[in-house]
Amino acid sequence: MEEKEGDGFAMILEEEDWIRKAQQGDTNAMGQLFKHHYSFLYKYLLKITMDQNVAEDTAQDTVIRCMENLQRYNGTSSFSSWMITIATRLYIDRTRKRKREKRWLEEEHQRSVRRLRWQMERQGEEWTDLLDGLAGLSEEHRIAILLKHYYGYSYEEIGGMLGIPEGTVKSRTAYGIKQLRKELKKDGEQA
């Protein structure tokens, strides 16, 4: 346990060193920093988008955006939080721009969810009704639930990340959970 804590602390110090050097223009340190965080970023985007291709595209855009704006990172939040804030806003902007193609997007989203389901089942993991319900939520509700109840951010932090009032975050998470419960009951009745 102490060894793990020691490793964790060493990792934090190493990350701070990478950040400091990267902000001074050291591309090797910058590469190390983003290589270290990429998996976390990709998995976060996979959960909020429920689409492997969109997750990958958005992850790449996020890395570039973060590299361009690394000077603005001031350490008030963790680097991963800063990064996923940028990622979330990029994804929201992307969905807003594409709202005109709503019908096509819905069909594409269903195809992506089926692909995700297939990937999971291929590896012997069950695609549950909960995951189905989560995929069926709108992006804003899904993001709110994930950030609050999976990643453990406070309502205030989420509000800051998304640029919305705390009250809106609360109502989105509550609505999202209510929708999930409704979906589970519906699937339970159909079974």
Partner: peptide, 8 residues
């Protein structure tokens, strides 16, 4: 979600 993370 943890299982989803493990798969990917």
């Amino acid at each position: 979600l943890e299982r989803l993370e493990r798969v990917f």
